[in-house]
C-alpha cells in the first residue's frame, strides 16, 4: 500500500513538473527567440511577462472549438489525445535523482525502473507519431494529410538512426535500464566521452523526432499552412503544441541521462556531503542539464532554417544510418579492445 502511495505521489509530481516546464518552455521559447533577434519578447503579463503561459492557456480555452463537418469526429478528437498521452508517458522511466534514504528505507526518485527502460521510451515515441497521423488524416484536408505523411516518414526514418545510436550505447553499457546507465556514469565517466559520434547522431535524431527546427516539416507554415494541425483550434490545438514542448523536455532529459551523466556531476565524491544531500544536489544538476538542452533546442531553432524535404530524407537515410552503423562497428572494436579480446 505504501509502495503504491509513493509511486502515486511520484507520478503526480513528475506529471506536474513536466506540464509546468512545458508551459514555461513556451514562454522561454518566445523570450529566447526575442533575445536572439535583439527584441524584448513578452513582458506585459506580470513581471517580465511571467504570467504569459497562463494568458496563453486562457486564450486557448476561450477559443471556439471547431470540428470540420467532413472530418472523422472520433479520430479527430483521438489525435491530440494520443499525442498528449504518449508525451506524458515517457517520463516514467527517467531517473530524476539517485534517491532519498528516510528512516532506513531507500526511495529512488524514479517512477519505475523496468529492465527494458530505453526500449520502453522507443516504443512510446513510436506510438506518438499516430497522434499526428490520425489527426492529420481525420481533418480531411490536403495540407493536414501532407503534414501527417511527412511526419510519419520523417519519424520512421530518424527512429532507425536513433536506434542505431542507442545500440552502440547499449554495447558499451551492457544494460537497457536507464537507471543503471546513469549509475555507470558516476562522477565524470559520462558516455559522451566514449560515444562522441553517438551523441551527435542521437541529438540530431531527437530534433527530428520532436519535429523541431530544422526538421519541423510536418507543420511547415510556408508550404502547408499549419501542417497536420491546420484544422485544429482551441484546446485541441493547444494539446498538439503543448505535447511538442513536453516531448522537448523529455528528450532533453533522455539526452542528459544517456550521454551527459544524468544526476552525476564531477567531483561527486570529494564534496563530503551526506548521500541524501548529494542526491538533492544531483537532481538540481540534472535539471540544470535539462534546461541547457531545452535552451539548445531553442537556440538551434532560431539559428538554422528548415531543411527541404528531400534533404531531410537524404540526411536520414544516406548519412545518419550509415554513420550509425559505422558507430556500431567502431564501438564493437572499442569494446573488444577494452576487454582485452582484440589481438593484432
Amino acid at each position: 500500500m505504501e509502495f503504491l502511495l509513493i509511486k502515486f505521489v511520484l507520478v503526480v509530481i513528475v506529471f506536474a513538473v513536466s506540464l509546468g516546464i512545458a508551459a514555461y518552455s513556451t514562454y522561454a521559447e518566445r523570450k529566447i527567440a526575442a533575445f536572439l533577434q535583439d527584441r524584448v519578447g513578452p513582458d506585459r503579463a506580470g513581471p517580465f511577462g511571467l504570467l504569459q503561459p497562463l494568458a496563453d492557456g486562457v486564450k486557448m480555452f476561450m477559443k471556439e472549438e471547431i470540428i470540420p463537418s467532413n472530418a472523422d469526429r472520433l479520430l479527430f478528437i483521438l489525435g491530440p489525445c494520443i499525442m498528449m498521452m504518449t508525451a506524458c508517458m515517457t517520463g516514467v522511466v527517467i531517473p530524476w535523482g539517485h534517491g532519498l534514504e528516510i528512516n532506513g528505507t531507500f526511495y529512488p526518485v524514479q517512477i519505475t525502473d523496468i529492465n527494458i527502460g530505453i526500449l520502453y521510451v522507443f516504443g512510446v515515441v513510436s506510438i506518438g507519431v499516430y497522434g499526428i497521423m490520425i489527426g492529420g488524416w481525420a481533418s480531411n484536408n490536403k495540407y493536414s494529410l501532407m503534414g501527417a505523411i511527412r511526419a510519419s516518414s520523417q519519424m520512421i526514418s530518424y527512429e532507425l538512426a536513433m536506434g542505431m545510436a542507442v545500440i552502440a550505447l547499449i554495447m558499451t553499457t551492457g544494460t537497457l535500464s536507464v537507471r543503471e546507465m546513469v549509475e555507470q556514469q558516476h562522477g565524470i565517466h559520462w558516455n559522451v566521452f566514449t560515444q562522441p559520434l553517438g551523441v551527435i547522431l542521437f541529438i540530431v535524431c531527437a530534433f527530428a523526432e520532436c519535429n523541431r527546427t530544422p526538421f519541423d516539416l510536418p507543420e511547415c507554415e510556408t508550404e502547408l499552412v499549419g501542417g497536420y494541425h491546420t484544422e485544429y483550434s482551441s484546446m485541441k490545438l493547444g494539446f498538439y503544441l503543448f505535447a511538442e514542448y513536453i516531448n522537448m523536455f523529455i528528450s532533453s532529459a533522455i539526452i542528459a541521462s544517456l550521454y551527459f551523466g544524468g544526476y552525476n556531476f564531477p567531483f561527486i565524491d570529494q564534496l563530503g556531503l551526506s548521500p541524501n544531500m548529494l542526491s538533492i544536489v544531483g537532481t538540481l544538476i540534472f535539471f540544470g542539464k535539462i534546461f541547457f538542452f531545452i535552451f539548445f533546442f531553442m537556440w538551434i531553432r532560431w539559428t538554422i532554417p528548415r531543411f527541404r524535404y528531400d534533404q531531410l530524407m537524404h540526411l536520414g537515410w544516406r548519412t545518419m544510418i550509415p554513420l550509425g552503423i559505422l558507430n556500431i562497428l567502431g564501438t564493437g572494436i572499442y569494446v573488444l579492445y577494452k576487454n582485452g579480446q582484440l589481438h593484432f
Binding site: L36, Q37, D38, R39, V40, D43, W299, T303, I304
Partner: peptide, 24 residues
C-alpha cells in the same frame, strides 16, 4: 555541416547579449 552550424550558433548567441532594439 557541423562547422557551419556551430558558427551560426555563435552568431546567434552573440545577439543574446546585444542591446535590445525595442522601445517599450
Amino acid at each position: 555541416y557541423l562547422p557551419a552550424i556551430l558558427s551560426g550558433l555563435l552568431i546567434t548567441i552573440k545577439h543574446l547579449f546585444r542591446k535590445k532594439a525595442t522601445v517599450k
